[in-house]
Design a protein around this nucleic acid. Structure first.
Length: 298
DNA sequence: CGCATTTCCTGGAGGC
DNA sequence: TGCCTCCAGGAAATGC
């Protein structure tokens, strides 16, 4: 399940190995992985130079000369790899972009097809993005590695539980089920804690936990649970450092308590109830930002 | 508004 | 060995 660290790892490798290349040809094996504007993608990208590849939330943006940007969402099982000439096609390879340098190919492969690609203009208007890509995908939330304390506090001033809020890509983009649980354990917050209830100290801990967990995971090349591979087709290593995710029944690496599994927002949720107790309502009253408590109408 | 549920899809795991 | 069922989940749509 590619989340921020996996997507960042892939984007950095692609930027290093593919940018500067010119596209010599494009083969689309499955037309329906292209969402949005019904654009002749292959023709549009041929002979265009790849200017830059970077991450935005969980998406990879590939910027071409000639005003085109290819946005890729890897969904659950998506991969983008750089293949050498003659390397056999993996099953479920949907899009191949041939590169000028050493006849290599950039390949998008996605067995479960929860992923997709969109071709948009560099400066596509928000109206167009909403229309062709969808409201949620058009909106870009704050990056968990760059969000300020005040911004994070503002995101949390909602009447929602902390886990569904972190999984919502609208306010904050990049965290998925695995890193959500890892971050909440590191921050010692119960996944069902009402976000509005968090005090300044909690928010600070949450922000620090996000930065620590995500940057350590990037340094480890991401987490390989099943399908994830880097652009060089390597596995990540961070799964060995998971403290709660997929560890139900095992001992908490911090306190030794047995890790529990819950269902939150329809997702498997792993936590240590000793490290992440559900706080009493009264206990947090002192730290709550009351100024955001009023609901603005109109 | 928030939240649970369902939908899309395939491969891997477990039961018998 | 083989068949069956269940399960994983990102994000959208739907209903309460």
């Amino acid at each position: 399940m590619p989340e921020l660290p996996e997507v960042e790892t892939i984007a950095r490798q692609l930027q290093q190995r593919a940018s500067g290349n010119t596209v010599t040809s494009v083969t689309l094996h499955r037309a329906d992985v292209v969402h949005g504007w019904p654009m002749p993608l292959c023709a549009a990208l041929r002979n265009q130079k790849i200017e830059q590849i970077y991450r935005q939330g969980k998406r990879i943006r590939i910027q071409f000369s000639g005003d085109w940007t290819l946005v890729v969402h890897l969904g659950m099982t998506g991969r983008i790899t750089i293949a050498n000439p003659g390397q056999p096609l993996e099953p479920h390879t949907h899009l191949c972009i041939s590169l000028s340098e050493n006849r290599r190919e950039m390949r998008f492969c996605d067995p479960r097809r929860f992923g997709a690609v969109w071709l948009i203009g560099h400066d596509e208007s928000q109206d167009n993005l909403r229309h062709w890509i969808g409201r949620k995908l058009a909106a870009v939330g704050s990056d968990p590695l760059e969000i300020s304390l005040d911004e994070l506090a503002a995101c949390l001033g909602r009447n929602r539980r902390i886990k569904p809020l972190l999984l919502d890509q609208q306010p904050i983009s990049g965290i998925g089920n695995i890193y959500c649980d890892e971050v909440l354990h590191r921050a010692r917050l119960h996944p069902l804690t009402p976000a509005r209830q968090l005090g300044r100290g909690d928010v600070n801990r949450l922000r620090r936990a996000m930065r620590q967990v995500l940057s350590e995971a990037i340094a480890a090349g991401g987490s390989t649970i099943s399908d994830y591979r880097t652009a060089d087709n390597q596995q990540g290593n961070f799964q060995q450092k998971h403290r709660v995710y997929n560890r139900a029944g095992k001992k908490c690496k911090r306190c030794g308590q047995t890790i529990q599994r819950l269902l939150v927002a329809g997702r498997s949720t792993f936590l240590c109830t000793r490290c992440q107790p559900m706080q009493e309502l009264a206990a947090s009253a002192a730290g709550v930002n009351r100024s955001t408590g009023q609901s603005a109408v109109g």
